[in-house]
Design a protein around this nucleic acid. Structure first.
Length: 423
RNA sequence: GGUUAGGUGGCUGAGUGGUCGAAAGCACUUCUUUGCUAAAGAAGCGUACCCGUGAGGGUACCCAGGGUUCGAAUCCCUGCCUGACCGCCA
């Protein structure tokens, strides 16, 4: 959520930055400001009346104690009470509208964010490793997995529906090995605390991190929208800190979690989604940071390298891109995507998205810290995938496939797989 | 799911219609003092919003939402949550 004070001060500057996203959100700004004015005028008047009522009510108490008649001023207070109610309702209506609109306005892209209208304008900021070459004809992960019996889409459809997968045998073990490997890496090397949150989470969480009110259709809702299957661990983990005032010395908070993620992926049919690439349920290790506002952009760089470390340890070629203003997510001010090379597909696959939300989520969820001067200030929140598993899985199978049809297990995973070859 | 007891400030815990934003203790901050790794004394110490250049002033908040009343932490209703016991269960 944007800061209403900043909005009052310079609405034109905010509109300009919103326009860089390409959406229509900037149109809402004028109505938000007029609601804000109505709200404040109503509140001021209401508070004056409340002050009058409090004073006169006390007089009634005093008169009664002395045994005197107070009926004259009682009716006056009753009148004030009615006006308070009427004015209060007007102010509440304006406030509700203001909040409703404000929740629909995305974050402002950071000033350095490259300007562009879509993903074709996203610059590559760095690459690591090179595309591997093969002396034999490469297969994609769907073929490799089928031959080695690692996963089965039809089995999943039988017990669920399309868009799900059942990992089997060594394939299931590989999934588990990756979870273990990634959690160990982030907790032991990068200093994260591990949590394991509920996967069914309430509606407030969704507003806190910005999925609601705009993206309800992307998620699996339960109990008439009172609860949702978590679309990413970002939501439960960041919301652990909702409505909190942290000590400055608590910062930075670094928390990692493994969770399955559930997404409807409505409207993505027909896009690149072969095999494991786009699932309704997928596993992900998430990295969440809560930091001092002065440090969030430096922390974003660090967080991104922590996610990149995953691919380096597994020896997978990747590139890191920065999202332009037209492609950066709703709540984010600045985002890097990490894309791993999948030789069988001949394409880069997004395995991580690392974002700085600045104070946007913190303001929505009232996540603050008390600074040295005793002021409560909003924290900055960040998160990054560290990483999503299915596409990592794809890249592993396709990168480490061998001429005989087996797959070599990368050294870092051998202790977890307890074997050097799959198949 | 049933029965029952509760939900008050960072924590513990008073407070059953007006002078309660709320006693007291603990914790915390600053100062004073003695001195040494502790003790004593004093003051301060919730959140949000509104008005004001400012100093400052005001309003709301005692789980949430309604209601009764001139006036609600206090009475009534609903919901949520927590504990205990019972049922059920991995």
């Amino acid at each position: 959520m944007l800061d209403i004070r900043q909005l009052r001060e310079d609405p034109e500057a905010i509109k300009t930055r919103l326009k860089a996203r390409g959406g229509e959100a900037w149109i809402l700004i004028d109505e938000i400001l007029s609601c804000d004015e109505k709200r404040r005028a109503g509140e001021t008047e209401k508070q004056q009346l409340q002050s009058d009522r409090n004073r006169i009510s006390k007089e009634i108490g005093a008169l009664r104690k002395e045994g005197k008649d107070a009926s004259a001023i009682e009716s006056r207070v009753r009148e004030i009470g009615e006006r308070i109610k009427a004015i209060g309702e007007e102010a509440d209506t304006a406030e509700a509208r203001q909040i409703e609109l404000l929740l629909q306005v995305p974050n402002l892209p950071h000033a350095d964010c490259p300007v562009g209208s879509d993903e074709t304008a996203n610059p590559v900021v760095r690459e690591w490793g090179t595309k591997p070459t093969f002396a034999f004809e490469t297969k994609d992960h769907v073929e490799i997995g089928a031959r080695l019996g690692l996963f089965d889409f039809e089995l999943a459809t039988k017990i669920s529906t399309g868009g799900f997968v059942t990992f089997t045998g060594a394939g299931a073990r590989l999934e588990r090995a990756l979870i273990q490997f990634l959690l160990d890496l982030h907790t032991e090397t990068h200093g994260y605390d591990e949590v394991s949150p509920p996967y069914i989470i309430n509606r407030d969480c969704m507003f806190g991190t910005g999925q609601l009110p705009k993206f309800e259709d992307d998620m699996y809702g339960l109990e008439n929208g009172a609860f949702f299957l978590a679309p990413t661990a970002e939501v439960p983990v960041t919301n652990l800190y909702r409505d909190q005032i942290l000590k400055e010395t608590d910062l930075p908070v670094k928390v990692t979690a493994y969770t399955p993620c559930f997404r409807r992926e409505a409207g993505s049919a027909g896009r690149e989604s072969r095999g494991l690439i786009r699932m309704h349920q997928f596993d992900k290790i998430e990295l969440v940071n809560i930091v001092h506002p002065d440090e969030s952009y430096a922390q974003l760089e660090k967080l991104t390298t922590e996610a990149e470390a995953v691919l380096q340890r597994l020896g997978l070629h990747y590139r890191t891109i920065e999202l332009c203003t037209g492609d950066v997510g709703f709540s984010s001010a600045k985002t890097y995507d990490i894309e791993v090379w999948a030789p069988g597909h001949g394409a880069y696959l997004e395995v991580s998205s690392c974002s700085n939300f600045a104070d946007y989520q913190a303001r929505r969820m009232k996540l603050r810290f008390k600074d040295a001067a005793g002021n409560n200030r909003f924290c900055h929140t960040l998160n990054g995938s560290g990483t999503a598993l299915p596409r990592l899985y794809v890249a592993l199978l396709e990168t480490y496939q061998q001429a005989d049809g087996t797959v070599k297990v990368p050294e870092a995973l051998v202790p977890y797989m307890k074997r050097e070859t799959i198949g």
